[in-house]
Design a protein around this nucleic acid. Structure first.
Length: 408
DNA sequence: TCTGGGGTCCTAGGACCC
DNA sequence: TCTGGGGTCCTAGGACCC
């Protein structure tokens, strides 16, 4: 009848998601301070009980343990969180025609025309929220507004467990209480730019005139400005897109000038990236590598492969060849990384007119074995020689494999 | 916030062509 | 050849997000 929304968008956001999944799986953790640790011993996620005791994201786990001796620190299990995410998406999909699976703990739903009035929209959002809580045992924060940016602002407004609705005629009042730097899409650079122009609150930014926006702001901020005024620019899309790139990067300690150390670090990253590419059934046409120096300068280079590949030995050969040419002595490095791009679906290597040659077929078989060993004995059981020094934390064992020679 | 890791998208500007 | 104007493609790097 009097649908108040031109467009109605719901944003669903899991509260302390990784930690909540752990508690949902093991109810005995309920009410306790729990932290999920990531690689390099840093806290990735934590329950509100842990937050209340002063622990924050990014804190080294050993520091967190010192602060809160009874803290439960768990290693983190991505597969489990993915399962919860799948269940979250499906529940939302029961209620909305179009759902965008935005990240492991968030999704957007376009619910335009799904209710007649504010009360109806509120009911619908509330139902989604209750079902999520009931079925997953995790609390979610939910926002409903006329655009994605506003829906994000809304869901973040009353965490955890909030349900916040921003009607078109309530936008201005709402945004008065929101710092512009908290708006989705406005990062440190844009926030600083706005601050220089005297804009601190989201409401101030939204209040700028069309002329000023057109003349003084680039596309990203113009879009956000429109969204903040309740004009939907960013569509909710349920089309799943093919992955564009795949990266493996790592910081090591201490920073070093030693060529062989940096080389081995890079090789280990190449191995990891290739293993994940094979796991996803992807092959890469190109790769970008970087060496990051102690003072955060980057040495970057790009390599391309004749035909898309995910064979570690192929990529390693090209990458290390370039590395050896480009490595500059005397600079202290702290990290390396590789990003595979031009990803192609499936096929191990692009079949030519006559199909993959014998060498390719054998290489595929070899990596089938390498991956199987990884699954059986744990990732990183098999390393190529170039990466072995960087994998010193694993007990090395030497295998001799056809076409690869000795591998650790 | 003395700065981890994995992603996406956008834009300026160079190379090249007519 | 004291050098216009416009188009496309591509890359590097910035900015942002979770």
């Amino acid at each position: 009848m009097s649908d108040p929304f031109l467009r109605a968008i719901v944003h669903v956001d899991g509260d302390a998601f990784f930690a909540s999944c752990e508690v949902a799986r093991n109810p005995r953790l309920h009410g306790k301070p729990v932290a999920v640790g990531g690689a390099r011993g840093i806290v990735l996620a934590l329950t509100y009980e842990a937050k209340a005791r002063g622990i924050v994201r990014g804190m080294p786990t050993h520091v967190a343990r010192q602060m809160v001796p009874e803290l439960v620190v768990l290693p983190g299990e991505y597969g489990l969180y993915k399962l919860f995410a799948q269940r979250m998406y499906r529940i939302v999909e029961r209620h909305a025609p179009v759902v965008e699976r935005y990240s492991i703990d968030e999704c957007f739903a376009d619910v335009s025309q799904c209710a007649d009035d504010l009360e109806g929209y509120w009911q619908m959002a509330s139902t989604i929220q209750n079902e999520l809580h009931r079925d997953l045992g995790i609390s979610f924060s939910v926002g409903l507004a006329p655009s994605k940016v506003l829906a994000k602002v809304a869901s973040k407004y009353r965490k955890p467990g909030g349900l916040v609705l921003i009607p078109p005629d309530g936008i201005n009042a709402f945004l008065t209480g929101v710092s512009v730097s908290k708006v989705w899409g406005i990062g440190p650079q844009s926030a600083a730019l706005l601050r220089n122009r005297g804009i601190e609150r989201a409401a101030q930014f939204a209040a700028l005139g069309v002329g000023e926006i057109r003349g003084s702001y680039a596309r990203p901020l113009r879009d956000i400005w429109a969204e903040l005024r309740g004009i939907s620019v960013f569509q909710v899309s349920n089309l799943h897109t093919v992955q564009q790139s795949l990266a493996a990067t790592r910081t090591f300690r201490p920073p070093t000038t030693d060529k062989s150390t940096v080389r081995a670090e890079l090789a280990l990253n190449v191995e990891e990236a290739c293993a994940r590419a094979r796991q996803h059934g992807l092959s890469a046409g190109r790769a970008h590598c970087f060496l990051k120096s102690q003072d955060f300068q980057y040495l970057r280079f790009e390599v391309s492969f004749g035909a898309p590949t995910n064979a570690t030995s192929r990529i390693l050969e090209v990458v290390l060849g370039r590395f050896d040419q480009l490595f500059a002595p005397g600079i202290k490095y702290r990290a390396t990384g590789i990003t595979l791009s031009d990803l192609k679906d499936r096929s191990f290597s692009q079949a030519g007119l006559f199909g993959p040659d014998l060498y390719e077929q054998r290489l595929e078989a070899v990596y089938g074995v390498v991956d199987a060993l990884g699954r059986r004995f744990g990732d990183g059981i098999v390393h190529c020689a170039a990466a072995a020094p960087a994998a010193h934390q694993l007990r090395p064992r030497i295998f001799s494999l056809p076409m690869l020679g000795e591998v650790y």
